[in-house]
Amino acid sequence: MSFAFGPESIRVRDLRKVYRVHEREAGLLASVRSLVRRRWREIPAVDGITFSVAPGEVVGFLGPNGAGKTTTLKMLSGLLYPSSGELEVLGFVPWRREREFLRQIALVMGQRNQLAWDIPAIDSFELNRVIYRISRADFRRMLDELAELLELWPLLHKPIRNLSLGERMKCEIAAALLHQPKVLFLDEPTIGLDVTAQRRIRSFVAEYNRRYGATVLLTSHYMADVEALCRRVIVIHHGRLLYDGDLAGLVRSFSPHKLIEVEMEQGSPDLAGYGEVVSADEGRVTLRVPKHATAEVTARLLDEVPVTDLTVEDPPIEEVIEHVFSQEAR
């Protein structure tokens, strides 16, 4: 594959998407009133973001609900057209949805099914084979490979509705990859799955990316997904780009805190004087302290409190992200 439009597989410049929604108020009277007159508001879901992704990269999209992640993904896959800005995937303008473009991408949404509900996955796969013009040999090879990696063999001949959520998701992903897309969009692929299924899908995506050099864009609520898969993350909030870089850098540059966990023989004395008390159980207290004060507070604790054990940690990445978002809101 050669990219006529440069080395990137995805290029986004100053992308914006504005929705018009009507405002709703609470209460019986207000809802009657809104029958007659309704108020409209313009909401910028994506508000001028710029980035590019090289072929073979796996990029995690982070942001709270409503940050604009899904909107961006839909614009990239061609379901939405942008209000303004430039957008290019594999050299195509996505929203034109040219056949040639559609044959090279795949979108998997964790909350939506594409496979026919009542029939076995293998039959839907066969339909996809015809629709995507996959040769029988390629199909066979790809199916073998996917079934091996995802452990699909026992599932292929059961109706989708009889599968568990995790099994269904594995089939969904397989269906989306039969045509070997060069760009893969995953919107919350592990949502609602148990930990084992999440891990299985994670390692599969990594493997697919390694074998085929596909570009992967992923949104997820589970930081574990992002930590396992993405060396690079893009954080968006209120439609704006907050951070674009590697995961470790995100924690370093955004977390001004450390967590100190203190264990004691007995009791849980009030340690509010040392830092913000995050949790306090019998014999164990967790404190949040500013990064620069860590050494000083630790010393004081060891000195003044009957400590049996003490550990200092970076806050979990979720907390860092949450912190970033709440900072931004202020």
Partner: peptide
Amino acid sequence: QGTLSPLLLKPV
């Protein structure tokens, strides 16, 4: 229900 979207992404 948004099930039109996956249909639109198929090359047919």
